[in-house]
Write a protein that binds this DNA or RNA. Structure first.
Lengths: 296, 296
DNA sequence: ATGGGTTACGTCAATCGTAACCATG
DNA sequence: CATGGTTACGATTGACGTAACCCAT
């Protein structure tokens, strides 16, 4: 099972065409055909149906394995390259939207003082792609926010040997329109809110499925979906009564126009975790040290 | 980065010898040397120091990536083979020691009635190797027990696309010698026991590091280490006052000679999860269905 | 001098491209 | 009949083994 073969296999499957895949990979259509044939011979099964081109059952299974495999291969290469190559003088930070805050601002300031020549880049991305971006070296480190039980780490996809450290932990509250009867109430149970209308903002807050798992009950039916990473827009929808959302309490305390009530059960925290691989000396390593020690 | 090259690399590193690795892999010493050279050329760095043979820094990093990568490759192959090969007529179940219980016994009985010709095999293994065993097809499915927050899945190593379902969940209690002042006490907090003497039984109960993380405090210093998967021996040590252990409450309730006290905080459960890949029709699939529906 | 990793070189297999071929819509 | 995947074939590349080499105990 050559990685090359796996790459062309996933490409063919994605484009549903041998010739398109050949073009994208810089091969002849014939070479692609031969690679697929070799892979099928190696595994002893047909992987693709031809005309129209699509995965067989076995091909479907292989596809689920192949993508993470290729990510991990690239991650391995990036990891040794990091250690072998020139000392990194850039600083690219990946982060989920809610992970960018005052603590990061302070730390970034110190890094700019120490390395005046580097221009830090902050790239806001979805939670589930960040570990892969770190592993493959597309970002140097990442700040990921999410909900978890106090004792448990965030459930992040495992894409290789990465270090994960919590750098901030805040209580969780539900955002409400001002004047909502529940606003300000203490001891709220998440399960009691399962029948309410919820806002689904996948780039900012945990999805409904996660809420159901945390509360242990069904419900949390999303009424409106908010696509975007902008907090103000989401809060405006909350204020207008379009639904509820779970957010860190300090964020809601500082937001005008919305009320909130802390969630007491189940015991949940909003946590920001720093994800990074090995960091040779440089601005990225400094930023990691600052964030780890600031813890806030 | 050919998988073959990675395999010889990890073998050379493990045996600290080119010639030994060549013997184990069925190559010439020369071929091994050439493969390592090619890999080093590909990655642009020295990976091994010669005479004595050992990994360089970059080699160390690559080793951390290579082992899981090879496991996942084998898992991919096994997964398509499962779907392509002859319908599985065997039944090999992997399980951690505490996951083998009455519910499994009942389910296994039904499987034997439905498939009188198969001889089920139950293989007791450590928690952290079971997912890999499932992925690579060495066992058909696995029952894994462990501690977790009620809403969170067990923290298992991710070795590929596997399905995980909770099949049983029980309260957690601390095992104590009979007559211990805490025995029978309700509302015990785990953190209050951090200074006690603990038994470290890595094959049966969560390690000290996990307890520290769950309780959020230091401590849980292991006094005695118990290597083995036999519950009775461990309980005998508890009864003799050699230390405390965390176990499912029903197990302790049925054990003579030991007392116990349920843990109220943090909210933890002892859960048994079923781990399996795709299961073509056969005894393994039936057992999975039975376990999933019994939930006990 | 010997054990063990490297290098040179010959052989064989694998892979790619060109081009002829065939099947499906 | 045309688009697109397969097969045949020749050329190139790469991988392994033998054997000579070299370096460090």
């Amino acid at each position: 099972m050559d990685p090359q073969q796996l790459r062309t296999f996933v490409t063919v499957a994605r484009l549903a065409s041998f010739s398109e895949a050949a073009r994208e990979l810089g091969y002849t259509q014939s070479a692609v055909s031969q690679q697929i044939a070799a892979l099928e011979a190696d595994l002893g099964t047909a992987l693709l149906l031809r005309r129209p081109v699509g995965p067989t059952g076995a091909g479907q299974r292989l596809l689920e394995h192949a993508a993470p495999l290729l990510v991990r291969l690239e991650a391995a290469r990036a990891d040794v390259a990091r250690l072998a190559g020139a000392p990194n003088t850039r600083l690219v930070l990946g982060a989920t939207a809610l992970a960018v805050g005052a603590a990061l601002g302070r730390a970034l300031g110190e890094v700019r003082r120490a390395y005046p020549r580097v221009e830090p880049v902050v790239r806001v991305l979805a939670q589930d792609v960040l570990p892969a971006q770190v592993a493959t070296g597309e970002v140097d480190l990442a700040l990921v926010d999410g909900l978890a039980a106090p004792s448990d780490p965030l459930p992040l996809p495992d894409v290789g040997p990465l270090r994960t450290v919590a750098v901030a932990e805040r209580p969780v509250a539900v955002a409400l329109p001002v004047g909502h009867p529940l606003a300000g109430r203490a001891g709220l149970a998440l399960a009691d809110l399962s029948a309410a209308r919820w806002l689904d903002a996948p780039d900012l807050t945990p999805p409904a499925a996660r809420l159901r798992a945390a509360a242990g009950v069904d419900g949390f039916r999303p009424a409106t979906r908010y696509q975007g990473t902008d907090l103000h827009g989401l809060l405006a929808l909350v204020a207008a009564g379009h639904g509820l959302t779970l957010l860190p309490e300090p964020v809601l305390a500082a937001a005008p126009g919305v009320g909130y009530a802390p969630i007491a059960a189940p015991r949940l925290v909003h946590r920001i975790e720093l994800v990074h691989g090995s960091l040779p000396e440089g601005p990225a390593a400094l930023l990691a040290r600052l964030l780890e020690s600031s813890r806030g």
